[in-house]
Design a protein around this nucleic acid. Sequence first.
DNA 1: GCCAACGTTGGC
DNA 2: GCCAACGTTGGC
Length: 137
Amino acid sequence: MAKRYWLLKSEPDAYGWNDLIKQGEGTWDGVRNHRAANNLRAMAVGDEAFFYHSNEGREIVGIAQVSASGLTDPTDPEGKWAAVKVTPLRKLRRPVTLKTIKADAALAGMELVKLSRLSVSVVTQEEWAHVLELAGG
DNA sequence: GCCAACGTTGGC
DNA sequence: GCCAACGTTGGC
C-alpha cells in the first residue's frame, strides 16, 4: 500500500518535538478516542506524520515517521487500545500555524480543522504537499 | 479565563 | 434506547 500521511497532536508541555528529538524515538500512546485510535491502527511503518503542537504554538513543527505500528498501548491495563512508535524525520523550515491552515482554502477540509479535538488525524496527499509548500519545502 | 465541540455517564 | 448533565480538550 502507498505511504499514508497523518497528523499527531501533542501539548509541548507534556511531550513536544524537542522531546522526540532528545529521545530519538517516541511511543504514541494514551489515545482514548475511538476515531483517533482507528487512525493509529491504520498506520504502517514508513508512513509520515506532521507533528503538531497544540495549546502552545498551535503549529506544525516537524515531520515524524512511523517506526513501529500495530502495538498495544502499554498504558492501557486492558490492552484494548492501540499505539505506534515514531522517530523524528526532520523539522519544517517554517512552522505552519493553525491560523495559516484555517485561512487556506486548500486546507479547510483537513480533519485537524473539522475535528479540532482529535489527537491523531488523517492528512491527504494533497494536503500534505500543500503544507510542505507553506513550510518552504 | 471563557466557551464550543465532543464524548461519556447515568437516570429514566 | 433516549437524553440531560457533566468532564475534557483545545482554540481564542
